[in-house]
């Protein structure tokens, strides 16, 4: 009986694996993908702020050199 049950369970697991391709649905609902997005956004925004500050410094220099 036990052996029969385990074979049945094995069969079910094989069938379910074949039918659905495991993506990250669970990861997105229960997991912490939003944490990753937050981290990447912080890095991105940080770099953009850096770019803007370089842009401003350059503009200042351009004005100074013109005068």
């Amino acid at each position: 009986m036990k052996a029969l049950l385990s074979i049945f369970l094995l069969f079910i697991s094989i069938v379910s694996q074949a039918q659905t391709l495991e993506m990250a649905e669970t990861m997105r609902s229960e997991g912490k993908i939003y944490v990753v997005i937050a981290v990447v956004l912080i890095i991105l925004i940080g770099l953009i702020c850096y770019l803007i500050s370089i842009d401003r410094k350059l503009r200042k220099l351009e004005k100074e050199l013109k005068n």
Binding site: R28, I33, I37, L41, I48
Partner: peptide, 13 residues
């Protein structure tokens, strides 16, 4: 800037 932020959020979700 707006498109980059959209890319990161949309790209993951």
């Amino acid at each position: 800037i707006i498109l980059l932020i959209y890319t990161v959020i949309g790209g993951f979700l």
